[in-house]
């Protein structure tokens, strides 16, 4: 079976891989590139645990083919902190105890970062609707929403 050769950029680094046509970007990240921060919770776009950005746009990596990544810019949770320094959102998630099991956390952080880039001062309702595609079963969302709003306030100060 012939594979597709894909050249892409992930978290700023060039990446190359071979994939089958039916493999999703999530399959490629996890199985070929060993970037397991994006999680498969449903493989149908209903849980958001696999969220990444593709050319700056928030997507579910389970709903993107690996082949479609050719020539694209992809950002995953592994690229969110800079070196030892956590992103404000990551720090606020820890400060607010906005995670319990943590399986949804990478996807929610990516989605929240994408929100704050578009809307630096979201209302609670805006945060809740933006994150509606990121299921969390542990927290009841309360502390997640607090963390995002607090991070937004902190980021506006800078």
């Amino acid at each position: 079976m012939s594979k597709i050769h894909v050249t892409t950029r992930i978290n700023g680094d060039e990446a190359e891989f071979l994939c089958d046509a039916e493999e999703t970007l999530l399959d490629v990240l996890r199985d070929h590139l060993n970037l397991t921060g994006a999680k498969e919770g449903c493989a149908s776009g209903d849980c958001g645990a696999c969220s990444v950005t593709l050319n700056g746009r928030l997507v579910c990596s389970c709903l993107v083919l690996g082949a479609e990544a050719d020539g694209a810019e992809i950002a995953t949770i592994e690229g969110m902190a800079s070196g030892e320094k956590l992103h404000v959102l990551q720090q606020k998630f820890l400060d607010h105890a906005a995670l319990q099991c943590g399986i949804c956390t990478p996807g929610i952080l990516i989605a929240a970062k994408s929100l704050l880039e578009k809307n630096p001062d979201p209302s609670e309702t805006e945060v809740r609707y933006w994150l509606a595609g990121n299921l969390c079963r542990c927290t009841g969302y309360d502390k997640i929403i607090n963390a995002v709003i607090d991070a937004a306030a902190e980021m506006r100060k800078v």
């Binding site: 970037l35 397991t36 921060g37 949770i77 902190a81 956590l86 943590g102 990478p106």
Partner: peptide, 12 residues
């Protein structure tokens, strides 16, 4: 830290 950076290793 592991859980907010994607480093934590889950079942899969």
């Amino acid at each position: 830290i592991d859980k907010v950076t994607g480093r934590a290793l889950y079942g899969a």
